[in-house]
Amino acid sequence: MLEVTNITKSFDKDGARQVVLSDLSLEIGAREFVCLLGPSGCGKSTLLRIMAGLDQAEAGTVHLDDRLVKEPQPKCAFVFQDYALFPWKTVLENAVYGMDVQGMYDKTTRVEKAREYLKLMHLENYENSYIHELSGGMRQRTAIARSLALEPEILFMDEPFGALDNFTRMELQELLLDIYRKNKLSVVFVTHDISEAIYLGDRVVVMNAHPGTIHSILEINRGLVADRTSEDFHLYEDRIMQAFQLVRKQEIEYYI
């Protein structure tokens, strides 16, 4: 469905050219939940933004259902770590606006749809609140609701729960999995939290840094990770830890 082929991307840093992504390829299937996992600065956000059409790669291509992605595509939504809500709009207005811009439905249906997804996110009592009145978790639920209201085929999420406390994060992970199961969409989820990646993803793409490449891809058997304290969950964690250790060893060798 989404096909990333031989992507290279670099930025100017203090006059020098810094390669952030190097010859990276990846495929995301329909209705698949893929987590991009890696240490800070390894290029996860850069990769996600290129996939979403927000940025362009220097070399390589991204195709969405055989269309070349050069700009944001229809049926795609993006959830940002810092929410990127419109603070001058109420919760309901935020949820309605995207559908309005995309010319979806008529006015009453838009409001109905928005209400439906706000309810799914347990926000039905906060429709008329402004963003500054909401907690971080409620803000991110609003952002997710407004994205879902667009009924996207792909949902890009860049460390969406990174700024939240543990309790809120776990609650939102549950909500997200629930929605993922009920709706027919793919999710590309960026995180630097190992257990979050295992808990949410069908596949975990482990990235290493400088330059960002894919170290390995781990298939997760969902049946085994429903319980975060289970033996199997820890086995997955161990395997990812080992992957990162390998990355570190390589770096050390490189420096010597």
Partner: peptide, 14 residues
């Protein structure tokens, strides 16, 4: 202007 705000609008193909 806050660039993420622009990005979130760009995702809507505004």
């Amino acid at each position: 202007i806050d660039k993420t705000l622009i990005d979130s609008a760009r995702m809507l193909r505004i």
